[in-house]
């Protein structure tokens, strides 16, 4: 989902910065607030960032014969709500733009929008919806993380189609083209990300049940039987 450095026309690159900035600023405020209100949350916050760090570094082969990577932003968005992940996701993207020549500074606004804004919000929204509809923790987490991953790549496809409409078939043709490169490749990876996020949440219910209860992931009075590993 990394749009390469310089591969968005200047005006569009600037527009994506304008769209993303408020989300990241709001996210930074939420992050500071969260840390002040719950200093003990710092470690779990770090772990959520670390999860995004690992997953976005892993390029995994897919059925389309190309490689892509998960984003890892779903976990933190489920635990700490979407805004916090906008900040952590931006840090990951900045690291990759500066050190790995992956993505770029000029396209940072667009990449932040897909991976650190839309991804986390989809994860958070799907998770809340899943729980409200009576879905279990595992099922809700799976769909939240998987759909967030997929949504990120759909947004990237749309961003590129807007910037580079097909000479013959226009925006729609370009959307289909970039969609087949990104979104299709991403389907099995999104499933993988969903499963890995479920795995981490399961482990967290064992080692950090108190944190999860405070964050509203586990119900307050009823501890899971055998909550200690």
């Amino acid at each position: 989902m990394h749009i390469a450095e310089g591969y968005l026309p200047p005006v569009q690159a600037a527009a994506w910065f304008a769209v993303s900035t408020p989300f990241v600023v709001h996210g930074a405020r939420s992050l500071v607030h969260e840390v002040r209100a719950n200093p003990e949350a710092k470690l779990l916050l770090g772990a959520s960032g670390a999860f995004a760090f690992v997953l976005s570094a892993l390029k995994i082969p897919s059925v389309t014969g190309s490689c892509s990577h998960p984003t890892g932003v779903g976990l933190g968005a489920i635990l700490f709500r979407a805004p916090v992940m906008s900040v952590l996701g931006t840090i990951v993207l900045l690291f990759q733009a500066l050190l790995l020549a992956h993505g770029g500074l000029s396209t940072l606004g667009a990449n932040v929008f897909s991976m650190a804004v839309v991804g986390p919000w989809v994860a958070y929204g799907v998770y809340r919806l899943g729980r409200r509809l009576g879905g279990g923790l595992g099922v809700s987490v799976f769909f939240a993380a998987a759909l967030a991953d997929l949504a990120t790549y759909c947004v990237t496809s749309a961003q590129l189609a807007l910037a580079f409409p097909d000479p013959d078939s226009g925006f729609v043709g370009a959307l289909a083209k970039f969609g087949s490169i990104f979104a299709l490749t991403q389907i099995p990876l999104a499933v993988s990300e969903g499963l890995l996020t479920v795995l981490v949440i399961r482990l967290l219910t064992r080692v950090s049940p108190d944190d999860l209860r405070r964050l509203g992931i586990l119900r307050r009075p009823a501890p899971t039987p055998g909550a200690v590993a």
């Binding site: 470690l43 670390a50 690992v54 997953l55 570094a57 892993l58 064992r206 590993a229």
Partner: peptide, 20 residues
């Protein structure tokens, strides 16, 4: 990048498990 992330995750689970 992966090692930093995985390292911190491992540290977290070690700390959290011991605390629990």
């Amino acid at each position: 990048q992966a090692a930093l992330g995985a390292g911190f995750l491992g540290y977290y689970f070690g700390v959290a498990r011991t605390r629990q």
